[in-house]
Design a binder for these strands. Structure first.
Lengths: 107, 107
DNA sequence: CAGTATCCAATGTGATACTG
DNA sequence: CAGTATCACATTGGATACTG
């Protein structure tokens, strides 16, 4: 992303969300949050643990999710959406409307 | 995408939109439609013509854009959003709201 | 102009093993 | 459990040249 350039907020959002698996991860946490690493891995069909790990770090860096560690044995780590990610819920609502409509027209 | 399985409309939309450059292409056409191949290539910074061509075909296959050829010399081809793609405008609105907010909290 | 062809680089996948 | 490390492999994307 370029520096010292006022970037269009839509392009900005697209940059934040466009890597592979990023949207499915956030959506899993929109449905219910927080979740543990294994829960996410099981729920998001097809993702591998190394990519899940990579994306979670990126999302944490961008303040969309937060990671909390509990000193249990075996270890527990929970990932939850931050309040900064709440605006994304409307995005998913619109994706839902669009999906419902488009599924019908496409047979 | 799996067959004979009722897929969640959100996952369905994500599948339609999650490939690299798909969202920037649609967004370019949300701003103004129709546009010619070269216009899209110039406007979408960083895209290469082969990827643009590939994505346009996919989007046409999914009925989100339509392609019209004019028998001029040199050739003119226009790409426009279909009415089926109109529901995506709300998605971009929400992406805009989110981007505006997130740009502020992230400095 | 509107693409296609080609070849190379980057990214993601899959399997497996290993650590705290 | 929650990851990281390592490779081999496949798929995707990027750069560039070229055609009708």
């Amino acid at each position: 992303m370029k520096k010292n350039v006022k970037i269009c907020p839509i392009d900005y959002s697209i940059d934040l969300l466009s890597k592979k698996w990023t949207l499915p991860i956030i959506y899993a946490l929109v449905k219910k949050s927080p979740k543990r690493f294994k829960e996410l891995e099981r729920e998001i069909t097809g993702i591998s643990p190394n990519i899940l790990s990579t994306r979670l770090k990126e999302l944490e860096f961008n303040h969309l999710i937060e990671r909390e560690v509990f000193p249990t044995i075996p270890p527990t780590v929970e990932y939850g959406l931050t309040e900064h990610a709440n605006g994304l819920k409307s995005v998913f609502n619109e994706l839902e409307n669009f999906g419902l409509y488009h599924q019908k027209i496409k047979q």
